[in-house]
Design a protein around this nucleic acid. Structure first.
Length: 477
RNA sequence: GGCGACGUGGCCAAGUGGUAAGGCGAGGGUCUGCAAAACCCUUAUUCGCCGGUUCGAAUCCGGCCGUCGCCUCCA
């Protein structure tokens, strides 16, 4: 099994992955708060986590992954209240659209999508344990985590709480805290808000306890990898560690991977700038989901990425290069010939691709390897395809695409990309074939006026004819 | 104030000690009846600036300049 290295935020260094159980990786990824449609920034993180998951599978690991859905939280409660529905009814459509977006970007389904509201008992149990062991205390109707009791607090983020700028004032519902830095584990019920019974009276869980309780339920007290966006590193992940490790006396996760944020056209995403694009927004603008995924994986996950429409268009053209090579490959006849050049290219590609992924998920380098291979194969096509070459090349591309999931255009059927301009009653393949053949006949008869008329007709229908040596071929643009 | 990241060709982006991947763009070429498309070739003696370590530095160290992130809403 390939040695895979990751940059571990806990310790801030590159480490070789050694799962607790050989060959099996347990992975927890912080999921969405389902109060709105997820935006392109959220999706970057989910795509990164998908590449991680696929890479582990590529290297032969079995993966058990849990991604939580936060379905009770301040914003949800406020919005549901305003809409006059309960939180379940409010979040349901957002849960659906979330899964639609994942599917649209070819993000694999994971094993578990636990919801906070379905795991209140587990959260209560963990809070009770923290209370018993002195890591938590009651104040009013609420329960807080006692940071002073946790010597390790800050080990993930490296934060020195004495240096932290103090908040201007304590939130009104957090009166009674021993220390302003303590965070809430259980919030006492407020009038009109969703609530659950607990040993401390009715209330609802704090945000951080959710992930601690649910990761333990599905992955165990200690699991292998925990992911999320960098913004969650502090306080969310720090607090998860504090809760879980204080309660269990064992490490929470051994490797912490954080993906960087993206900006949009040079600006930080914000509601006021109106640039918190959802995938639906992008599709409305005619951007293909496939190109969006390509752009998101074209930059290393720990680098900030500036998302621009121009870059999506560039991604489009880059992918076209792959499509064109596969098109040429499919239309070239195989013949007896030297297989060595292709084998050399194949070996180089495999080696570079695997090494790139094993090196902290270097997708930029992996894509670089793909394009070098495309170049090499083009050379092979020019010099004559040896028998078996098509299958060899396609096999390699498919294997790479197990991780990248962008190389095979046919897997993205229904992608909105060029669709908006297309006539609903376009030409069928058979009709196009007939036209192309009559054009070829016209050309053979040197009736170029007629040939050009047919070419124009096809172009109007969105079909490009290419006159290659040995005959004309066509494709929809 | 504390912690951290980044600055590589026109644009984007890999590369963390051994002599600059890849994509887009641009220029040239091949093919073609002409096109288009495609393919091929070319495009950084140099990696923000200054010093240092080293046989050797984009890569390590120090300083400076610039951009950005986090410090309890946030992927």
């Amino acid at each position: 099994m390939e040695a895979v290295k990751f940059y571990n935020s806990l310790g801030r260094r590159l480490e070789t992955l050694e799962p607790l159980e050989p060959g099996h990786v347990r992975l927890y990824t912080c999921g969405p708060t389902v109060y709105d449609r997820v935006h392109i920034g959220n999706l970057r993180t989910f795509v990164f986590e998908d590449v991680l998951r696929r890479t582990l599978g590529f290297f032969g690991y079995r993966v058990t992954q849990a991604m939580n859905l936060t379905d009770v939280e301040d914003k949800i409660i406020a919005a549901a209240l305003e809409a006059g529905v309960d939180i379940g009814a409010f979040t349901a459509p957002h849960v659906s659209s979330f899964f639609e977006d994942l599917a649209a970007l070819r993000i694999e389904r994971v094993e578990h999508y636990p919801r906070a509201t379905g795991h209140i008992d587990e959260m209560i149990a963990m809070v009770e344990q923290l209370l018993e062991e002195g890591y938590a205390y009651r104040a009013g109707d609420s329960v807080f985590f006692r940071i002073a009791a946790d010597e390790d607090y800050g080990k993930l983020s490296g934060i020195d709480l004495d240096q932290v700028r103090r908040g201007e004032r304590v939130q009104s519902d957090e009166y009674g805290k021993e220390d302003a830095r303590d965070f809430v584990l259980w919030k006492g019920a407020k009038e009109g808000e969703p609530q659950w019974a607990s040993p401390w009276g009715p209330g609802r869980p704090g945000w951080h306890i959710e992930c601690s309780a649910m990761s333990q339920r599905y992955l165990g007290k200690t699991f292998d990898i925990h992911c999320g966006g960098v913004d969650n590193l502090f306080p969310h992940h720090e607090n998860e560690i504090a809760q879980s490790e204080s309660a269990n006396g064992s490490p929470l996760a051994r490797y912490w991977l954080h993906s960087e944020h993206l900006t949009v056209e040079g600006d930080k995403m914000s509601k006021s700038l109106g640039n918190c694009y959802t995938l639906a927004d992008l599709e409305t603008r005619g951007l293909a989901a496939r190109s969006v995924r390509y752009l998101l994986i074209s930059v290393h996950y720990r680098q900030q990425l500036d998302f621009t429409f121009a870059k999506v268009a560039e991604a489009d053209r880059a992918l076209k290069r792959v499509d064109d090579m596969r098109f040429r490959l499919a239309h070239q006849t195989e013949q007896a010939g030297d297989k060595a050049p292709l084998e050399e290219a194949a070996t180089g590609f495999e080696g570079a691709f695997v090494a790139a992924l094993a090196d902290d998920l270097n997708t930029s380098a992996a894509l670089g390897a793909v394009f070098r291979f495309v170049h090499d194969v083009n050379g092979v096509i020019d010099r004559g395809l040896p028998f078996g070459a098509r299958e060899r090349v396609e096999g390699l591309l498919q294997r790479a695409d197990q991780v990248l999931a962008v190389l095979d255009a046919s897997a993205w059927n229904g992608d909105s990309g060029a669709a908006p301009d297309e006539e609903p009653g376009g030409l069928s393949d058979a009709e196009i074939e007939r036209l192309v053949q009559s054009r070829s006949a016209a050309r053979a008869a040197r009736d170029f006026a007629a040939a050009d008329r047919i070419r124009d007709q096809l172009a109007a229908a969105g079909v490009v004819v290419e006159d290659a040596p040995g005959g004309s071929r066509w494709k929809r643009s």
